[in-house]
Design a protein around this nucleic acid. Structure first.
Lengths: 124, 124
DNA sequence: TAACTGTACTAACACAAATAGTACAGATAA
DNA sequence: TTATCTGTACTATTTGTGTTAGTACAGTTA
């Protein structure tokens, strides 16, 4: 489900980009699946169509989706490449966050505990 | 050393808050140590005194520093409590980032490798 | 006394995000 | 063909936040 949080400091169009990219990478949106039209999604989320268009344009630039003028926007068939890039991106962000935690006194064991909790409590 | 990055999207006053809080928590700024005056730091960093004042006011609210009108701003003597809060804050952020990485396909082993690298390559 | 200090204002400016509105061409179903 | 979708491209305006500019006042210190 595509959502936005108006209270979030992150701009709406960036929320949409990250949200839809993640849904596509996780497989919740299938390759060639038809996305809501610019006007329809704007109506659903009660935001301006221009904001949706801005997000869709950036998603197309990132090869997450492709547009067929007059027909609509669709999930890219080769979403796999995007998925690999996104994984690397999140791992880099994670490495940075580990450094931040370490710098304020976090012990390796404490982080290992977080890691175990994230991977043991849920599926896989 | 207190610095700011004008290219960073994060507001200057927030950069100052995080920067000084981290320096204090890490012990690079000692309890009761005298901070640069609002006007002096503004001159050094080539930014407006109001921006420094905004950061100092928030740091005082967070008990990172205390102000003596007419004398200056000083690092809080009980910075330990702040350090504990900050550590918890970073661990929560880390847990969230682990979840993000996991959701885009990161394997536990990959994260463990990052963790080892962060703690083995440097001191401690 | 002079020169610092923190603090409290108001006003203006700059920038990005978001909105509002219009327009046009391609696609599609009636 | 017509009506109604679709993406796309504009301009203008509004809004909110961060930042700057300037002034003022009281406390501190050499």
């Amino acid at each position: 489900m595509i959502t936005v949080d108006m209270r979030d400091r992150k701009p709406i169009y960036e929320q949409l980009i990250d949200n839809i990219r993640t849904l596509a990478v996780q497989g919740h949106l299938k390759p060639d699946e038809h996305l809501p039209s610019v006007r329809q999604l704007a109506a659903e989320l009660a935001i301006n169509p221009n904001t949706i268009q801005k997000a869709y344009a950036e998603l197309e630039r990132q090869n997450v989706i492709y547009a067929l003028p007059g027909r609509g926007n669709f999930i890219s068939p080769d979403i796999g490449a995007v998925a690999r890039q996104e994984k690397e991106r999140q791992l880099r962000a994670l490495a940075a966050q580990i450094t931040l935690a370490k710098n304020v006194g976090a012990q390796k064991d404490e982080i290992r505990t977080l890691l175990d909790a994230a991977y043991d409590d849920t599926t896989r």
